[in-house]
């Protein structure tokens, strides 16, 4: 008697199904990894804004202790850097130290694509679609008690505002173009004089830049925790 034992056969449809399943699994893993890598790093807002300048020449400078949550970094320019940029024409000890705080968020991003020209559609230009990155600039002039010359003009308002926390006052200069335009806050104390500058910008979807309340709070925080 001859017994025929059928060897187990791998049916082609099983092979095809396994390959498709394996390929699907690989695709899912790869896509997950790629998307995971592209996710923004968690935004860590410092408890004290002075942490943003640790390790720079502004580390010991009198500076804001508070900034809006949409600010996660600061760019510091030291007097030596500025002096080098203008050909060392003036003494470094009279130059201010600059801290620039870029604001996050789509409305604050720079939207220029190439230089200005006819490739920029007229309607989009008129709507404010082409705008720079929003930032708040803080400049400290240690050892100076003076403020810059007061600006004037039909669209300029100059007012004095009290700072609730520190008890000081600031000179607020606004170029008020229908609620938009540059804002300057300037003040001095026994250690120096200071300037905060930003622009409340008009974009197609609303406003770019900080609010007046935020700028005043930043100025107020400079004197916080002074000993």
């Amino acid at each position: 008697m001859v017994t025929t034992i059928d060897e187990p056969r791998i049916r082609p449809e099983w092979l095809l199904g396994g390959a498709v399943t394996l390929l699907g699994a690989i695709i899912i893993i790869v896509v997950t990894l790629v998307l995971g890598a592209r996710e923004d790093a968690p935004v860590i807002t410092p408890v004290d804004a002075t942490e943003l300048t640790v390790g720079t020449c502004a580390e010991d400078l009198r500076q804001p202790h508070w900034v809006p949550k949409t600010i996660t970094r600061a760019v510091v320019e030291c007097p030596a850097d500025i002096s080098a940029g203008i050909g060392r024409t003036t003494a470094e000890d009279h130059l201010g130290t600059w801290i620039s705080y870029p604001l996050d968020g789509p409305e604050n991003e720079e939207t220029f694509r190439g230089g200005p020209g006819l490739a920029w559609p007229e309607e989009e230009v008129r709507a404010g679609a082409y705008h720079p990155l929003s930032a708040i600039t803080y400049v400290a002039y240690p050892g100076s008690a003076e403020l810059s010359d007061e600006l004037s003009g039909d669209n300029v308002t100059v007012e004095t505002e009290d700072l609730a926390g520190s008890g000081g006052t600031v000179r607020v200069t606004r170029v008020d173009n229908n609620g938009f335009g540059p804002v300057r806050l300037e003040w001095s104390d026994d250690a120096g004089s200071y300037l905060l500058l930003s622009t409340i910008g008009r974009t197609p979807t609303g406003n770019a830049g900080p609010t007046m309340a935020e700028l005043l709070r930043i100025a107020d925080s400079v004197a916080a925790d002074d000993e």
């Binding site: 009279h94 130059l95 400049v139 002039y141 003076e146 004089s193 300037l195 500058l197």
Partner: peptide, 8 residues
Amino acid sequence: VSLCDPEF
């Protein structure tokens, strides 16, 4: 913005 302190 002035580069130097305003009294200099």
